[in-house]
Write a protein that binds this DNA or RNA. Structure first.
Length: 427
RNA sequence: GGAGAGGUGGCUGAGUGGUCGAAAGCAGCGGUUUGCUAAACCGUCGUAGGCCUUUAAAGUCUACCGGGGGUUCGAAUCCCCCCCUCUCCGCCA
């Protein structure tokens, strides 16, 4: 959400910058609503001042023993008009807030202009895709053949876009999560948190998923609770409505959580395998920073995510999203894409964003040092990494001609072996 | 799920219908005093929104005592609903 005063004072330039990311701001609608709201507020407040004065007057008169019935009757009428105006103000406020809360963040100056993912800019490439002396298989063949991935039974138990992992498949997922958490907490300076997986509407509003993207979420019937689509939501909202001491910033947190997404509108995309699931596991990195340090921390956070890929010896590239492809709340986003031999392409495995004050303003997360006025923090987050897609990358990149999977050195202590062989107990 | 207690400013904590945005204390900030520190003393000290103003400041008004509704000329205070915290009981991993 934008700062109203700033937005109002810079309407034309905001309109242009929003257009750069493909959002069409209706200036007339904005100004009209803004003007109507201020009119109603002004009128209601004038009447309230009048009523307050009259109440004090009545109080004095009654102490003197005067009959105030008529005066009370008059004020009562004023009260009715106030109630009427207050209702108008409430309605206009809601409407205005709704309008404001659906306007996306503006992108940073370093973000290239563009309309779609075609205009994203590759800024870096690490590792060389391996040369195979046989035709590499996609994970949806490898997993079931090894008896470690079972999509049929997942469909029975839950439905399409769910997975069941057996034996070393399950252990591989757990090993990846443990490796990521250990590296981030021990070597990158993040504190681990384990947040709730169900979250309320206020939290989703704070990070920007609501009100605009409700259809992407799963909701618990009869409760104000939703399944978290990413740990970004519960972790960023840990400090909702709080003022953080500037000396403590930046605060770096990492969290393992499952993530639940309805994937409405993704029909036909990534239907094979486990690239796109209703549930996937992820280790998330979240930072709260002072405004002036957020871009430096954004680079660091992205490097922290990349470090995991490098330890796992997985070739990847870093892509800077263009204005049109950057998400609703973000000012700047890097996607990390891992090489998947089975798809013969790079595929998103992490997304690292700087939201500047956009989420902090929605979630009321401030910072204050000494006597300076409090200001909104900047929030950042990134996957470090999506475990499901890392699982896929391990299988596809390290598959052997005999169908087994070699395990990169860094992961071996976590998996307890250097190779995944066919699961003899998968019936 | 049942019974009870409670939610007031950064914190502690008064306040049961009328200048209460709210006593007092602590912390914070500014100052006086002081060889330094400490103490003492004086002052100051919430947030948001509207009006005014070129912006800001100042000024002024409005709102805010967990959230929402109601009663009243007037609500932190009375009534109703909800949420949260704590204690006990039940249930449960």
């Amino acid at each position: 959400m934008h700062d109203l005063t700033f937005f109002r004072n810079n309407l034309e330039s905001m309109r242009k910058r929003l257009a750069a990311r493909g959002f069409d701001l209706d200036l007339d609608a904005f100004q009209d609503l803004d003007r109507k709201r201020r009119q109603a507020v002004t009128e209601a407040e004038m009447l309230k001042a009048e009523r307050n004065a009259a109440s004090i007057e009545i109080s004095k008169l009654r102490k003197q023993g005067a009959d105030t019935t008529d005066r009370q009757q008059q004020v009562r009428l004023t009260g009715d008009r106030i109630a009427d105006l207050d209702q108008q103000v409430t309605n206009l406020d809601d409407e205005f807030r709704d309008l404001l809360s659906r306007i996306p963040n503006i992108t940073d100056a370093s973000v290239p202009l563009g309309r779609s993912s075609d205009d994203n800019v590759e800024v870096k490439r690490w590792g060389t895709p391996r040369e195979f002396d046989f035709k590499p298989k996609p994970h949806w063949d490898l997993g079931p053949e090894l008896g470690i991935l079972d999509l049929e039974r997942a469909a029975k138990v839950a439905g399409a876009r769910f997975a069941v992992y057996w034996g070393m498949g399950a252990r591989l997922e757990r090993a990846l999560i443990n490796l990521m958490l250990d590296v981030h907490t021990n070597e990158h300076g993040y504190q681990e948190v384990l947040p709730p997986f169900l979250i309320n509407s206020a939290s989703l509003f704070g990070t920007g998923q609501l009100p605009k993207f409700a259809e992407d979420l799963f909701r618990c019937e009869g409760h104000d609770l939703w399944l978290a689509p990413t740990a970004e939501v519960p972790v960023t909202n840990l400090y909702r409505s709080e003022t953080l001491n500037a000396d403590q910033l930046p605060i770096s947190l990492c969290a393992y959580t499952p993530c639940f997404r309805s994937e409405a509108g993704s029909y036909g995309r990534d239907v094979r395998g486990i690239i796109r699931q209703h549930q996937f596991q992820k280790v998330e990195l979240v930072k709260f920073t002072k405004p002036e340090q957020s871009y430096e921390e954004h680079e660091k956070l992205t490097r922290d995510a990349e470090d995991i890929l490098e330890r796992l010896e997985l070739p990847y590239r870093r892509v800077l999203l263009c204005s049109g492809d950057t998400g609703f709340s973000a000012a700047k986003t890097y996607d990390l894409e891992v090489w998947l031999p089975g798809q013969n392409d790079y595929k998103e495995i992490s997304s690292c964003s700087n939201f500047e004050a956009f989420q902090a303003r929605r979630a009321q997360i401030r910072t204050k040092s000494g006597k300076s006025k409090s200001e909104f923090v900047h929030t950042l987050n990134g996957s470090g990494l999506a475990a499901g897609r890392t699982w896929v990358a391990i299988l596809e990149n390290f598959q052997q001609s005999d169908g087994s999977i070699a395990i990169p050195k860094a992961l071996q202590p976590y998996l307890g072996c250097d190779r995944i062989l066919p699961n003899e107990k998968h019936y």
